[in-house]
Design a protein around this nucleic acid. Structure first.
Lengths: 110, 110
DNA sequence: TATCATACCTTGGTATTCTATGTATATGTC
DNA sequence: GACATATACATAGAATACCAAGGTATGATA
């Protein structure tokens, strides 16, 4: 994950994954890589603190489960508060995206 | 300026302003506010260090001028190196923007 | 049994931006 | 003339986001 770009919040991306389905941390890292075509390579040192923080805020809840393969996994589920938070962040992202493109204007080519 | 969002680099926005015309610092702050409809409210404590850093990198050059009103102004001009840098950043921005929208998918509404 | 992939976690550091502050000049207003 | 406001530059210190590097532990593979 490139520091210059991710400051908008790993939390927004994490919440948007969890809105679609409950997941465990390790899985989120793989999912983000896939869905972003390797643009977002989330580090564990980034993700786990973010998850803990989101749980403290009440945006997600966690449940320990033992998978078929015997491994321990900590599944995270988004709460209604988390959904509201995500909605807000998504709106801010749209505003931000528009503003950048407006300023960049002629520089962009696509 | 909201810390969560500007991490992509004030420098990209600054360079894109300077590509269009030479400007002095104070002017850039006003311009960015206008062009982004007040989304980007660059702080002086952010801008000036960025300008100094860009100058050190050779992405811009500065010239002191005294304006008609007698005020001192430090005009900045983008160099060819700066233009190349801007082009790179603009391409990264496009990649990043696409990736976010891909991950966000259903969450976005516009 | 050694190594790899999975799965969790924390500590310490760097980079970016903000807040707060300082200096100085010009302009408008009372 | 005095004072506030806008212009115009600058720096120091704090906050934040993210990463790099390390640790623990289990299951699968060779």
């Amino acid at each position: 994950m490139d520091k210059r770009y991710m400051a908008l919040g790993t939390s927004m991306l994490v919440l948007s994954l969890l809105k679609q389905q409950s997941m465990y941390g390790y899985q989120m890292i793989r999912e983000l890589e896939q869905r972003s075509q390797m643009v977002f390579r989330l580090q564990e040192g980034t993700l786990y603190p973010v998850l803990h923080s989101l749980e403290q805020q009440g945006a997600v809840i966690s449940m320990q489960k033992t998978a078929e393969n015997g491994r321990m996994r900590k599944y995270y589920e988004i709460t209604s508060h988390g959904k509201k938070l995500l909605q807000e962040k998504a709106e801010e992202w749209k505003i931000y995206e528009t503003a950048v493109n407006q300023v960049m204007g002629g520089v962009l080519f696509g």
